[in-house]
Amino acid sequence: MSAKQTAIESSNMENNQPLDIRMKTRDLSVFYDDKQALFDVNLDIYKNRVTALIGPSGCGKSTFMRCLNRMNDYVDGCRITGKVRLDGFNIYKDNVDTILLRQKVGMVFQKPNPFPKSIFENVAYGPKIHKLTSSKDELEELVMKSLKRVGLWDEVSDRLSSPGTSLSGGQQQRLCIARAIATEPEVVLMDEPCSALDPIATARIEELIAELEQQYTIVIITHSMQQAERVSDYTAFFHLGKIIESGDTSKIFNDPEHQKTKDYIGGKFG
């Protein structure tokens, strides 16, 4: 990393252009014990855009995503080298507080994982622990706002106290998204959010992603080429722990530079 590059970064950060780089990784490598899972990954993630990560199973997409909010800290024997910057700050510095980081970089998991609590408590959990609201009214309002934003409010407003696990799969996943955005994050990471859902629920989530794009920076892992094409602005193709190709989604899908990318998108392996 040269000094010049750093200067560019900071200047980029200051003028609030829509195409700000929100997060970037430089030479990011991840090791599980002795096994290397990621090799020198460099990727920029743009503000208020959807970035899709695609690639065959076990290629390191999830590992990469978990580096972005340091969830890898909870994996035993995981070691990370290189840099991950959020708004120009390296989040792997010692003085970074993972609690605040995760409040700003939310995450939605592959399988819906609502807590065994009421729908209201599920969404209110984050704001409560972070004390984002000062009164009960404010909290209720925030919960309502979050549920409205994921389009769940009309479906559950009359049964906020029933358990979150009583919802259907698609509703559960939207509940989890509502839970993630209730902490007022700036970046939302989604690890195959639709893999456990039926096509209708999937379509609903995709719509939701398009809406959320206005306010959040979104990174999404998907196994579905069509989905990546539909929802994302940028796409990065991972293979065996390396980024083979990244760039505009339309470019990657219509005119990939790399043969492997072409094969994968064309369905030759995966």
């Binding site: 909010n69 969830m71 909870y74 993972t98 609690i99 605040l100 980081l101 995760r102 409040q103 939310g106 995450m107 998991f109 399988k111 994982n113 609502p114 807590f115 065994p116 959990y125 984050g126 622990i129 972070h130 989890c176 839970r179 993630a180 902490t183």
Partner: peptide, 11 residues
């Protein structure tokens, strides 16, 4: 997945 969900929110 439950504890991961909670930790990912920043708990």
């Amino acid at each position: 997945s439950l504890s991961m969900g909670s930790l990912a929110i920043g708990a």
